[in-house]
Design a protein around this nucleic acid. Structure first.
Lengths: 214, 214
DNA sequence: GAGAATTTTAAATTGCTGTTAAATTAAAAA
DNA sequence: TTTTTAATTTAACAGCAATTTAAAATTCTC
């Protein structure tokens, strides 16, 4: 499997999870091979783009045959780093934190939730799906002691930067931030600021697009 | 305020909510004017891009002065359709549905949550923040009777397409879908499939990028 | 009037799409 | 069963479109 030496653009990278998801669905439907044309139709992309995207990482397909769905999904999973496991903590045990805890999909893909943290004394000491909720004061020490790689921030935006700082100080590798305010971290730390509301505002933009008479 | 007749690209549209959010933060910090250079530094964009983006909708800035933060935020809000109110329902009253219900930000921006729906008999009849949880069997009728414009889907992926179909049949205008599977709707309906996990997979990609030796 | 900052226009870059040649499969014929 | 032919489909490439950045021209502030 020869790998090109070209840099992969972020546009391609952000499409990979979608490929991974759609291929997973194909597998569940016992579809074991697919052409770029078919996949494009299902995903709403051009066949051309799919071939170009996948070729960034090597030739996974075969002329005259198409792509082997199982093999391709596995390859993309490897590229995304889903062949490993990751120790995670959730900071903020409110509804959103609990929603993530309860989502089976993450555990299945190798994200191991080791602990949750909160300030609320009523929550501290409880468990959700066998995950214990700790006092947020213990966050830094816990992260350092337990080799936590990913911190998931589900606290109100007023506290998100402070939580991020604590995580960074204790050698976190990556932060997945759901607070509706971007947090800043050093270059070496991987950060994804999710900002859920942005897609809602895009929605209302599209609802009103016609009446904007641009 | 003259509006250009050029079509605004989706790339620009998806940046608008971020401008809106950052400008809101500036207002909270009593910063009332800003140059594209400054704003770019804060948001991690080039000044050039900011000027170009904002110019799609007319000249909001002034030479020698910069942009009036309050005015600009309001203008972008109008463009995003945040000067109106929207009747919404949440389908699926689990943790994620509750998290959205509890988020003050949405109400503040004009999203009026009228009702929630669930299949779980233990939840039906309860209220969350004065919002009643109805039997999901009543969803279609409720949407039609109460001029609901936005449906928010927070059910497991197995049921998301069916819920979307019900919403569409009853004249919903837009769907904000959090189920980890894209739902398909007619062209005339606005849809945002959120797929939260995709940003997590992007995170792990970036964590492992170096070791991929592309 | 000097400086600052936008607007407007142009250049450069990036990303996407369509096409062609090569490879493979599948079908038909021997 | 083997060979031949036709149909698929990717990989690679080139051209085009969109996006981003840079530069020049203009306007406004102080």
């Amino acid at each position: 499997m020869q790998r090109n030496s070209i840099k992969v653009s972020m546009a391609v990278v952000r499409r990979l999870p979608k490929y991974y998801r759609y291929l997973g669905e194909l597998i569940q439907n016992d579809i074991l091979r697919i052409s770029s044309k078919e996949l494009g139709k299902i995903m709403g992309l051009t066949a051309s783009q799919i071939r170009q995207d996948l070729n960034c990482f090597g030739g996974f397909g075969q002329q005259g045959y198409g792509y082997n769905v199982v093999e391709l999904q596995k390859e993309i999973g490897n590229i995304l780093g889903l062949n490993k496991t990751y120790n995670c903590v959730i900071v903020g045990a409110g509804n959103l934190g609990q929603a993530i805890t309860n989502y089976e999909g993450f555990r299945r893909e190798g994200f191991i939730l080791k602990a949750m943290f909160d300030v609320n004394p009523r929550l501290i000491g409880n468990t959700i799906r066998d995950i214990k909720i700790h006092d947020i004061m213990e966050l830094g020490e816990y992260v350092k002691e337990n080799q936590i790689e990913i911190g998931i921030i589900c606290v109100p935006k007023e506290f998100s930067q402070k939580v991020a700082d604590t995580l960074v100080e204790n050698n976190i590798k990556a932060i997945w931030n759901f607070a509706p305010a971007d947090v800043n971290v050093p270059e070496s730390i991987v950060i994804e600021n999710v900002a859920i509301s942005e897609s809602l505002y895009t929605l209302t933009y599209l609802m009103n697009e016609d009446s904007l008479n641009l």
